[in-house]
Design a protein around this nucleic acid. Sequence first.
DNA 1: AAATCCAGTCACAATCGCGTCACATCACTC
DNA 2: GAGTGATGTGACGCGATTGTGACTGGATTT
Lengths: 224, 224
Amino acid sequence: MDVVNIFLTSDLGESLEDFVHDQRRFTFDRLGAGGPRRLVEGPMWAFIDWVLSDLAGLELCRRLRADPRTNDAHITMVLEEDDAEDRRRALRAGADDYVIGPLTRTAVLDRVLALQSRGAERHATQRFELGALTIDMAALQARWNEAPIVLRPNEFRLLRFFAENPNRVLTRDDLISGLGKREPAIDERTVDVWIGRLRRAIKSAGGGNPLRTVRSLGYVFDLG
Amino acid sequence: MDVVNIFLTSDLGESLEDFVHDQRRFTFDRLGAGGPRRLVEGPMWAFIDWVLSDLAGLELCRRLRADPRTNDAHITMVLEEDDAEDRRRALRAGADDYVIGPLTRTAVLDRVLALQSRGAERHATQRFELGALTIDMAALQARWNEAPIVLRPNEFRLLRFFAENPNRVLTRDDLISGLGKREPAIDERTVDVWIGRLRRAIKSAGGGNPLRTVRSLGYVFDLG
DNA sequence: AAATCCAGTCACAATCGCGTCACATCACTC
DNA sequence: GAGTGATGTGACGCGATTGTGACTGGATTT
């Protein structure tokens, strides 16, 4: 059964215990300024109040985006009123979406179900622009100067991880754990093959080679 | 009790006197174009405004990185807007991180606490700035005025060792043990070859010759 | 000026590590 | 459950890297 994890900064004034509906289990949790109290399996849906205190809502949003454990959450900012400037800032801080509050339980559920049915789950909108390379996390699409790069899932994850850690030597071990493949153990030589395939994919989109080999250590995504 | 030293180039328009919160003492200080007014014990967190005047923010960032007393600071650049090119330049100048401004007191605190909890202070990018020469230890990449220097592993280690001991005559024996090659024994004449190769690599990046030969003794990395 | 010393350079060989291939296995789709 | 595509593996060859010895030429000493 699917699990739908919903996190909120606001108190809806209704009891929101977990429950099952339509083949899905919904779990609710409070989202404090320090992030989620517990981590979950599966997609995460966050609703953040614009005004917690000062700009803490925006900051929390950025923090979720910055943390690798939560950066694929779908984040909805809850605005008090429909202010163009606020909307803009919310999206800039990494929100996928916004809604005019105040929230009710049904509003939250309707929204999540609607977004889910539109396939919005996971892979929050996020774009990397690294020189000629663009990575669109929403469309799961990478481009080299507009030219689309045809990537298989693992290659995409690899490229994304490099993009998140530019100008840093990443050992083969970093890459293996960065792609979440601690278990089962992966042979370090396999990483060579990943790199080779990724390079070839970029090349056949007309791109250069941003991946520099550091002999006896690992690889670097060179920026600049 | 932990001390958290925060330096800012901007005036937050709030009084930011020292205070204690959550078992930590926070100290705030202004960061002028000449660097910090006073030096501190413990980790240093710097927030530098992108636009001080002209590119002074970048310059200040480089200077903090170049100064051995401050080069382990965690530097966050405060950008006015989320521009990919600006981000790139900030990171290249040695910043660890960036945030979209304007800052507020809570934003600063939240950010520091978040970074602290992620153990980011240890992760400050080590970097040497020695005249025209830059050595980025994270990317294992050396540059002469922006121009990348193509170095093989041993040459990089050699250059790094020189950068760590500038203006000091290093004997061939110093160099051999400095690169950890005690075993098996290396012929001292081999060092001549290392030097030659390193000089050639710097030269083909358009650089000068910072390595001076001291006859019958060894070599010096000349600085200033 | 001759003798000596020492650094710079080159060619070469041994070694080590990367890239790649073909194939087996796994995952997913219809 | 068959078929198709993606991914992991082991082997292999090639190229990069690096230590070495020999040679050259300039510096230093006598």
